[in-house]
Nucleic acid binder design. Structure first.
Lengths: 279, 279
DNA sequence: TGTCAGAATGTAGTTATGCTATATTTTGGC
DNA sequence: GCCAAAATATAGCATAACTACATTCTGACA
């Protein structure tokens, strides 16, 4: 969970020597003014030299005052972190609605913070170039595979969601160059998925996995879209956090739609708009 | 609803002359990079002069490039309320990731505001009491039906996702008292879903629909869980807003799990925790 | 079609700012 | 008190932001 710059400044204040402490106090007291100030002005107001300001910025990992100011500006924007709230047996339906939405917001925010766009871009490129894509998932993640199948097929991609151990094995063993195996696994520790990845690669296919970084599945993949798994080991993954794979699919679909020249890439014409009759 | 700087840039783009438009396009495409750039670098990349950048910043009310960059940096921070940002063909993958998350946050927030917990509660009661539930959806919403099937079955409920016109018709015609038809339709205008609802009710089953209020489907349902449809009539429903039915399913599952006495109602033990081997 | 005025845009130059190199002062251990 | 290291400042350079003025483009009108 991200700690804001202002909090870090407050937290490290007491470890600073007097001059830097004066900077910390001033920034902490008047951040909105500071973001619009030159370094010279700030150093004058704090009765310190310019290089002390630089050292202050460097203490927090910034290359210079410019980067520091930009981050400080961003840390002024009110954004809930939406803390996770467990739903308990005593909760009313109204609380269920509220907490479900809140926990979903938490899951989306975490994804926004953690996801590396380079990885999404790489995954999209491999998928777009594939002659055929097998989409693999087990258990409750199977719905992610089906969702991806629908959406990719809407883009005209040749692909299939492969459910069930035998069907998955049958396709992974016959994987060939030019194909892609797209694998969804929250933990990246599902044995079947790891074996599928190994088999698909052995046949010459590329493996794109949507899984936890540094997981067994990640280690046998060509491209990983790393999605941080929920880290409460004593509890099972809450329903809300399962949104993240769903969102990654949307991103892949959108990236491929753009690369394919779509005008409205985030609005796939719903199948029901041309296949279903309306009243 | 606050309009962000990025949206204003997109909105005013078409009124600009070519040079300023090049700036608008570049800033719109790569805001995260722009905030860290010098004016000289940006002007070089856009093939415009420095004063053109200044004029661009002044157009939006800023005194200079510094103020512009600070505001742009802040407009990149997801904040409540999360304004919808359309993904355009010029968007980088980083923008796709950012906007997908942002638009998903927007969709969840809208749901939190609009959803009536009474309706969710009523829907959950009917579903919990059902001897058997048929789950109906068409087109891209079929994945919602499959998701619901998985989760309800995990609760021990007798249910089945019914996909395809003939299978749906076959089951709706043979609906009987004590059963429930759960129907997902974003618009509530899908003809097949309305006909299914009418047939199921004629057989004595109860109809729970997750659809737009005041829709044809809502009018032939026993219980409606009203989900506001996306109101951009000229555009198709964006991918992000399709989260809402997924969340309603989570709420129903959680409410039924609580009513059934579950200790951790929002954390279905994932199927994969007892059906899949881990490494 | 040519002319002209206003708008759009660029070039050249100045000032301010961010940043670095080096000097000076302060602090703490012995 | 001495000395070395850490903290801090002074001085100066490079470049970034910005301004003043010049040039080019565009559209209206004769």
């Amino acid at each position: 969970m991200t700690v804001s710059l202002l909090q870090r400044i407050l937290h490290e204040r007491d470890e600073m020597r007097p001059a830097e402490r004066r900077v910390a106090d001033y920034v902490g007291a008047s951040p909105s003014e500071v973001i619009h100030m030159s370094m010279a002005r700030l150093s004058e107001l704090c009765s310190v030299s310019d290089p002390t300001i630089m050292r202050f910025c460097r203490r927090f990992g910034f290359e210079g005052y410019q980067d520091f100011k930009l981050n400080l500006a961003q840390s002024l924007v009110p954004s809930a972190p939406f803390a996770y709230e467990q739903i308990t047996p005593q909760d009313s339906v109204a609380n269920i609605v509220r907490k479900t939405c809140r926990n979903s917001l938490n899951a989306v925010q975490r994804l926004a913070e953690d996801l590396d766009p380079e990885q999404v871009g790489e995954g999209a490129r491999l998928l777009q170039a594939a002659s055929w894509t097998g989409i693999y998932a087990t258990g409750i993640s199977e719905v992610n595979a089906l969702d991806a199948e629908h959406k990719f097929q809407r883009l005209g991609m040749r692909c299939q969601a492969l459910l069930g151990k035998q069907r998955q094995w049958m396709h992974a063993e016959r994987a060939r160059p030019g194909e892609v195996a797209l694998i969804f696994s929250q933990s990246g520790h599902t044995k079947q998925m790891v074996e599928v990845a190994i088999a698909a690669r052995a046949g010459g296919a590329r493996v794109v996995s949507v899984a936890a970084a540094d997981s067994p599945l990640a280690r046998v993949s060509d491209a990983v879209i790393a999605v941080l798994p929920y880290d409460r080991t004593e509890l099972m993954t809450p329903l809300a956090s399962r949104l993240n794979h769903h969102l990654v699919t949307n991103m892949l679909v959108t990236a491929i739609a753009i690369a394919s020249g779509s005008e409205f890439p985030d609005q796939l014409p719903a199948l029901d708009s041309w296949q279903t009759d309306k009243i």
